[in-house]
Design a binder for these strands. Sequence first.
DNA 1: CGTCTTATGTCAACACCATTGACGCAACTT
DNA 2: AAGTTGCGTCAATGGTGTTGACATAAGACG
Lengths: 246, 246
Amino acid sequence: MTGTAGERVPHERRRRRPTRSGTLLSAGLIVDCALRLIGEHGPEALSVRRLGSALGCDPSAVYRYFRNTDDLLLAVADRIIGDSMEGFVPGPDWVASLREMAHRVRNGYLAHPRAAALASYRVTRRENEFHAVETGVGILLRAGFEPARALRLYLAFVDTVLGHAALDAATLALPAAQREADGRASTLAYRSVDATAYPILATVRAELDVLAESSFEDALDLVLSALVAQAPGGPPGRDRASGAHR
Amino acid sequence: MTGTAGERVPHERRRRRPTRSGTLLSAGLIVDCALRLIGEHGPEALSVRRLGSALGCDPSAVYRYFRNTDDLLLAVADRIIGDSMEGFVPGPDWVASLREMAHRVRNGYLAHPRAAALASYRVTRRENEFHAVETGVGILLRAGFEPARALRLYLAFVDTVLGHAALDAATLALPAAQREADGRASTLAYRSVDATAYPILATVRAELDVLAESSFEDALDLVLSALVAQAPGGPPGRDRASGAHR
DNA sequence: CGTCTTATGTCAACACCATTGACGCAACTT
DNA sequence: AAGTTGCGTCAATGGTGTTGACATAAGACG
């Protein structure tokens, strides 16, 4: 748990007043509650009113901590990033480190699929995001890329990861029953397509099950292999400061 | 323009009744109007009521053509795919063909950024999507990949493209003024971060302008170069440098 | 031509939603 | 003890999707 506040409050909040029901509000608490609401009852359950009644306070109290619901959403997104990257330290193998980072982000999203579906493509510009960029670019620098190149490649990498994570999260955000039905229906729809109009779909008919699966790992492999091919220091082992020791 | 209807109506609609204002409704017309509304006044302008008044009919008439707003949204998404892929035929160079396909999808999304932001991660399972899959897998088959592998790689490729397009569309969906302010604020926020807490961000400080740019081309280059490296038939065209690395 | 059926546009109502401005209490500061 | 103000509460505004009953015109059939 990292629980940083919204950007509303410059320095530490000093006064507290308990709500009518006795609890003490805080930005972190509200984010917790939002995450819980979304997780339990779906993204559409996130409303200021519901938040208020779940927190035991007037709905409008939320606006003392967040400018609007979008602001709150960004805080939720940043929380997800923070939670998933918590305790991560890159190892000596830069490719493995990037891979772990990708998996952590994805897992973080999948842990809160409904929240992720809402917040995925947002740039939070908050503490936890800074930290992730710092870490990621650092990995590529140690792989031997020039600073400018490292930054660009990191962005390409992380956007790819985020994009796929968002897609997977969106799928997972559907109610379980619908998701499964949806997957089957999709495969079926594709399988039963007219063979003369779509000869190639007919060719791969037997393989269409992969439609229901995520392409995350495949895409990750593609991107990482391209990075390896371009790395000045060559494939990883130790970091490049120790020179090509082979 | 492709304008396929929603899935509500199995066979051709037979009876038409003009609305009070005289126009004849149809699913295609509604999709047109939705796209226009979103394009002109932002995604939040898409409401059944506004749709109604723009069409000169009662809002609830929309429900005769689409089960609900989500259904309408899928139709919009499929329309965007169809419009952007219209008239595309793969050329002899498979890498160039994939690249063009990627650009078309991205341009299609960016042409309706606000609609795309809403619809990007949805699988429409409608006509135009079938067609795109057919085309894309075909390209990879001709590049020499085995059918099963071609399908997997196509999915990884297209999801990457979609993910990035969605991200870019989301950015572009912000009102112009806010978008620019946002980009600047982002760069600034990153640039003014504490140098001792984030030494690596400090290192790349000079390059932080790329934060405001899209990583689409970089990511596309990475994925395509990885595909070239794995292609059984080797790189397309005559000289080896036509493989896609920037 | 008349009648019958039905697709589809219209109306009214329901139950939500975000956001805001005024109000006043309570918890700090001095 | 007095003053300031953070912040929880209240009430109100103007939006939203969706539904069920109703009405009417278009076509089918005689």
